[in-house]
Design a protein around this nucleic acid. Structure first.
Lengths: 249, 249
DNA sequence: AAGTGGTCTAGACCACCGT
DNA sequence: CGGTGGTCTAGACCACTTC
């Protein structure tokens, strides 16, 4: 083997070679020179253009494909991906962390904590009618003593064996679950709803205040783990997200 | 060089070697054997374990890191990433496509289309007070002749030179913009709001119906491209997202 | 100084697509 | 069949962290 591979070792550029290739492709796309669906130069052509190895080009394109810029078809070529849909990402923190990140003080009121047979809509959400008793909690989260979020959660007791005992003032069920079994998958639905008089009272908002309702269902390989309904009303009730139009540059 | 590199060419396994390494790591994490913060075996150790080249291990771990499972610290090691926050992704389609994907029929009413000096809050959103006249459109999108979304959009006229002329019944301003200048970045804010009597009338909902308000701001390298306010009320007004708890397996 | 991940190479074989 | 992307290797050098 050679002692000095021509690339990095010798007269390396300030930036990585991979990044240079990627930047080149990105520029062509963003300037519109390579439109959606355009077939970009092959790996070997880019190898010739940049004088780098094919692996370098390959990984540059691979990364761009994983970021949604390119679509690669083995045996055919690499194409500029269609950006017709864009992704909005909402980074949900743990409620406690969300509040504390804003500099607020969190407090939780546990209104209900029980292990009971769920009503049928909840049982349905858990996938089967033969669900056994489930852990159920209703919690009001305060920010600086102002009600911020009303959480109504059902959970398979298997995942929080100590659910009836743990202190919920300083940790959320969510974070608790995370510690026991991280990495799950789920779906979320967001709506604007009118809420009941009791919910208005718990959230301390005037009658008729619209609320943001988030329905969340979380599952792991073993099945549905937890189903939750979160209500937010008033000034801090917004959700903030970041649009990633197939990318983040 | 050898003609038969020991790996793939000869007695290859059904799955890729990279995937085997990745699957191994994933299993350790999901079973909890490697907890959050745990320092996993080094690349060289995994090389020894699996009998593959370091590049293979490296790319397996690199992929897992980009998916949020691992955090790699150069010079230190590879650690199981903290999944304390999770990401909810909302794949927004073009409104027209969203409706048609549901099997509905789309129609748009253009209530306003003008190029005017924006009111100061809009000018502020565009980043500077010295904004020139902006393209402004107010559009009601119907699904099967039922009002579905009210769109109020301001846009830099540079990005839609033919904005006053184009037919907006069969394409959205968004898709139009996409075609001219794809790949942008933005932010989004979702709230539950009460809407004005006129908005209730346009959306054909009873007085007091809560609405989902999405404020969206989009920019490119050149600055803010467009600012939009979308209102949805009633049954179809939900936003559906998918939770990606640092992953999608 | 030893170990870690980050990067790059030159070559090889493969499955697949297109003609 | 020639070209495309997909994968893997063995070796090399680097910047960095850790002790």
């Amino acid at each position: 083997m050679k002692l000095l591979p021509t690339g990095k070792g010798a007269g390396a550029k300030p930036q990585g070679l991979r990044d240079r290739v990627a930047a080149y492709v990105i520029e062509k796309i963003t300037t519109g020179e390579w439109a959606t669906g355009y077939r970009i130069p092959s790996e070997n052509e880019l190898v010739a253009t940049f004088g780098v190895s094919r692996m370098t080009v390959h990984h540059a394109l691979r990364d761009l494909a994983s970021q949604g810029f390119l679509a690669r078809r083995s045996g055919s070529g690499t194409y500029v991906a269609e950006p017709s849909a864009y992704i909005a990402e909402y980074a949900h923190l743990d409620v406690i962390r969300e509040i504390e990140d804003r500099g607020g003080v969190h407090r939780a009121d546990v209104l209900t904590r029980e292990i009971v047979q769920p009503p049928s809509p909840i049982a349905t959400a858990f996938g089967a009618a033969d669900t056994g008793p489930l852990f159920h909690a209703v919690i009001v989260h305060f920010e600086d003593e102002i009600p911020f979020e009303l959480e109504d959660r059902w959970m398979d007791p298997v995942f929080i064996p100590d659910g009836m005992a743990i202190d919920l003032s300083h940790q959320t069920l969510f974070s608790r679950l995370m510690r026991i079994r991280p990495y799950r998958q789920g779906s979320e639905q967001v709506r604007a709803v009118s809420i009941s008089a009791r919910e208005e009272q718990l959230l301390a908002v005037p009658s008729g205040t619209p609320a943001l309702e988030v329905l969340r269902k979380t599952w792991s390989a073993a099945g549905v783990v937890t189903v939750a309904r979160m209500l937010r009303a008033g000034l801090n009730g917004a959700m903030n997200g970041c649009i990633r139009a197939s990318s983040d540059f």
